[in-house]
Design a binder for these strands. Structure first.
Lengths: 341, 341
DNA sequence: CTGAAAGCGCTTACAG
DNA sequence: CTGAAAGCGCTTACAG
């Protein structure tokens, strides 16, 4: 059994108050007693009971993290970033998995609030369209940091990727490789990310004075390999000719490439293909897949840093800053676009 | 602000004791009051404060999970299994990442014990060779469940894959495809898993009366793609001829295949290759990779179930059962072994 | 069937 | 500089 404060106090012939104050470096305790207390505590390995401490201080040193898809490599890199940063600052992570469902997300948030987490770091589920549960967090004075999938209208701190610039980079890369008939398999109309990637695509076209052709834009609802395959097929059978393709995710790109292979269309020589997200697989497939890296681990790190910063402001100034942070993407050039132009 | 027990009691003109008992279904409270209390509580959305409850009951309804590698898809599937099962039973998961380091693992365990988790579910770090920290968990009467990477000697509940049978299946599959000169890139000598896969390999050979040739067994320390490549190269340059290859992980197999491709050695026609673990990539590469599925999600589910079962036994009989559970693997046949024999 | 009281392990205003 | 006492929000033996 771990010793209690009382036991320490008894052993040292001090009051629990004195021991507690010594441990927490109160200025009104003599240096001598502090030394005695600290060395004894170290010896017996005493640590304050977190739950008991909470009852007085209302701080649990716990962060709730909600991920929409726990098997998605991108979110795991984010989680890794969060955890590394959290550990450094003595925070504990409790993990929730919304499975892309708004209902699950809601449940998790209520659970976290009940557990009195100091903050919630999360990415919204695909599903999420109403935001009362998020406002509940804010009204509860719990710090909320949204990362990646988020809604601009929510009043909290945010970290997100500059998807528009990312889409621009991807498209421009194709243009520089000599592509002029560039298709785009975009994501669903709802999450901001896919809209922004699409806007980046359009901007790159107009910047390089290539006429936009709505027939070359198809929508992938789930962003899956299968959809990529089917969209490529649809485009091919419609007779529209292309020499470049920018896909909203790596998975969609992989599906498209699979279709092109079947039809003996060479990637990259006949069609250059680029994805988005830098998933694990892209490096191993043949041809290896060019993509846009979102720097997931950094996103996690920044989300946690935003939390820490907000926490500090909250403590000293009793208010929140609600900072927004936009991260840059990085173009990863690989075989699927390595045509000599 | 969430209401407290006291506020509920005041509003209902009852004592806090009565309200608490009603909520926890004590038999000595009238059905009528229970109804009143419960409906009121539901209306105002009261939930008992977890930390305060803990102080009395010593139950935190929290499970600590330690993963050696948080970006490894296999562990994430396990985590998914654990979480689904945990949620069903109202448990919260706090997550630790040991990064394959014994020191980190130790720290996390001490942190979890301090946080008074009800149980710890973990897979050992590659690094871990001493077990005091695990014994500390056991002595602390905290339930310990080890999954996947474990040490047989530790006195706790365990879930693991039947690696030997898995290795047997993989090797036998090659044999059935007509391979007779089968190499094995095995894992390091330390973790039990790679030893068992190796033993399965040997058993399959001897079962099918193929002479074992130690020169066909090479060791991959880290199980990486690069090592697979280098081992394949080494074997090739040594002049030893093979027509089948069983690798300790999918990554090693991928590396080997990359080398064979470079040398225009056809997989599967010249050499059949099979991996182990069913990583994401295997499905997308060309040729797609045959492998042995470890059913990670089931492993997580079972780990959590073992915990629940131990918890029940601990509560009623004040002792632990320390159950061991061995899971079966499943052969996944894909292109890398689809030679017609 | 219900309530008063003690106590889980801490922190902190207050008194000295 | 140190200690006695109250209290955070619950549960539970005990009394009635």
């Amino acid at each position: 059994m771990r010793p209690s404060l009382k036991q320490i106090a008894n052993a040292l012939n001090l009051s629990t108050a004195a021991v507690s104050k010594a441990l927490n470096d109160y200025p009104d305790i003599s240096l001598a007693t502090k030394k005695i207390v600290k060395s004894y505590v170290k010896k017996v390995g005493y640590k304050a009971n977190i739950q008991a401490t909470y009852l007085r201080t209302q701080k649990t040193m716990t962060i709730g993290v909600i991920l929409p898809d726990i098997t998605n490599h991108f979110f795991l890199e984010i989680l890794k970033g969060i955890m590394t940063q959290a550990n450094k600052n003595k925070y504990t992570i409790i993990l929730g998995h919304s499975k892309e469902s708004e209902a699950e997300e809601k449940k998790l948030i209520y659970q976290f609030l009940q557990q009195k987490v100091d903050g919630i770091l999360m990415s919204l589920a695909q599903d999420t369209s109403r935001f009362e549960h998020l406002n509940k967090v804010i009204n509860n004075k719990t710090i909320l940091v949204l990362f990646d999938k988020l809604a601009r209208t929510i009043n909290c701190s945010k970290v997100f990727v500059d998807d528009k610039k990312g889409g621009f980079k991807a498209t421009q890369h194709l243009i520089k490789k000599g592509c002029t008939k560039i298709a785009h398999f975009r994501g669903d109309l709802n999450p901001q990310n896919s809209i922004d990637r699409y806007l980046g695509y359009r901007e790159a076209l107009s910047f390089h004075e290539i006429k936009f052709d709505p027939n070359k834009v198809l929508i992938s609802r789930k962003g899956s390999v299968k959809e990529g395959y089917l969209l490529a097929k649809k485009l091919y059978e419609s007779g529209i000719k292309i020499d470049g393709l920018f896909c909203v995710t790596d998975m969609v790109a992989l599906g498209a490439i699979r279709f092109f292979k079947e039809r003996k269309i060479n990637v990259p020589n006949d069609i250059c293909v680029i994805g988005f997200s830098k998933t694990m697989v892209g490096k191993f497939v043949n041809p290896s897949l060019s993509t846009v890296d979102q720097k997931a681990s950094k996103m996690g790190k920044m989300a946690m840093k935003l939390f820490l910063s907000e926490e500090k402001i909250l403590k000293t100034e009793k208010r929140l800053e609600n900072q927004s942070l936009q991260l840059n993407t990085k173009l990863i050039k690989r075989e699927s676009t390595s045509k000599v132009s």
